[in-house]
């Protein structure tokens, strides 16, 4: 029983990273009908921005604001930095080719992915970097045999809180209704007085910003960051998006969490070596049963 609970906590933690990154994929897809391949690399860039804030501020940031303050500043810096990076990316790589159809957009997204990951390599070097142990709290909570670091709980709470916020924003506010309307039918939405450019602006700032924060969280939790780690998170998050139904906000969240929990349970109770095979098998079965993903059918809900 202890082991099961521990595995569920493990799965939810990694799943919440997947879910945060998946949200960015899903929001952009909903509005632009574009698979943003560069999203995983924005995640990496976010974790390097957080790293730089903590390394350059070194003792200063952590000494002045405490460990928790330092981490918060790194998260906010990554959120703002990656939000801006998302907007810049949209302006230089997507807007010029938006009218040319979907294929040029996808090629442009792939190009951006290379530009960002190679750019990171050029700036921070090809060797992995490490979030130093002095930047994070060491405390943990002990429940019987289960030991959970406080940091992990904080990350989990923050990730779930962000997801709840996005859900509320998209599903419960007038602005969210405008986003959903724009996703459904751009022309009609524009005729109804919705500023489509504002919607794009919002989606390209918020989606990447979430990914950037997830990047910092991953650095804080797992220490090691490298310029090419984005592809793995990108792949997993993309799988989560497909699993939940692409373009669907609750679908991306549930898909991410479900993927994390399934991975943890399969690795814990069957075999680590066959984990990815199992995950993709499940995905294929889900797609055969529900080709639009678990939550993909209600097109009216699409973002």
């Amino acid at each position: 029983m202890d082991t099961l609970i521990q595995q569920l906590i493990n799965g939810l933690t990694i799943g919440s990273f997947y879910a945060l990154v998946a949200l960015g994929y899903s929001m952009v897809y909903g509005v632009m009908k574009l698979i943003n391949f560069a999203h995983g690399d924005l995640f990496t860039l976010g974790s390097y921005i957080g790293y730089t804030v903590l390394v350059v501020g070194a003792s200063w940031v952590t000494a002045t604001f405490g460990i928790w303050g330092g981490m918060a500043i790194a998260l906010v810096a990554a959120m703002i930095g990656i939000g801006v990076a998302g907007l810049v990316m949209e302006r230089i790589a997507y807007r010029p080719v938006y009218k040319a159809g979907r294929l040029p957009l996808v090629v442009s997204a792939l190009g951006m992915s290379f530009v960002i990951s190679q750019g990171i390599m050029a700036i921070w070097g090809p060797n992995p970097q490490a979030y130093l142990s002095g930047w994070t709290p060491k405390d943990f909570l002990q429940f019987g045999n289960i030991r959970v670091p406080v940091l992990q709980i904080a990350i989990l709470v923050l990730a779930l809180g962000l997801m709840a916020l996005i859900y509320w924003l998209v599903e419960r506010t007038t602005f969210g209704a405008a986003i959903r309307a724009a996703a459904q039918d751009r022309d009609t939405a524009t005729l109804m007085g919705i500023n489509f450019n504002l919607i794009i602006f919002f989606v390209f700032a918020l989606g990447p910003a979430l990914g950037g924060m997830a990047g910092v969280m991953q650095g804080l939790k797992y220490t090691r960051i490298s310029f090419n780690m984005g592809w793995l998170y990108g792949l997993k998050a993309f799988t989560a998006t497909i699993l939940g139904g692409i373009g669907n906000i609750p679908g991306a969240m549930i898909g991410g969490l479900l993927l994390g929990v399934m991975e943890a349970l399969f690795e814990g109770y069957v075999s680590g070596a066959w984990k990815d095979v199992f995950i993709f098998l499940i995905l294929i079965l889900v797609l055969i049963w529900r080709p639009t993903g678990l939550f993909g059918e209600k097109t009216a809900e699409k973002v």
Partner: peptide, 14 residues
Amino acid sequence: ITKGQSDYSAAITK
């Protein structure tokens, strides 16, 4: 374990 991951907590729990 799968090379290149960041989270190995499932394998460790097992």
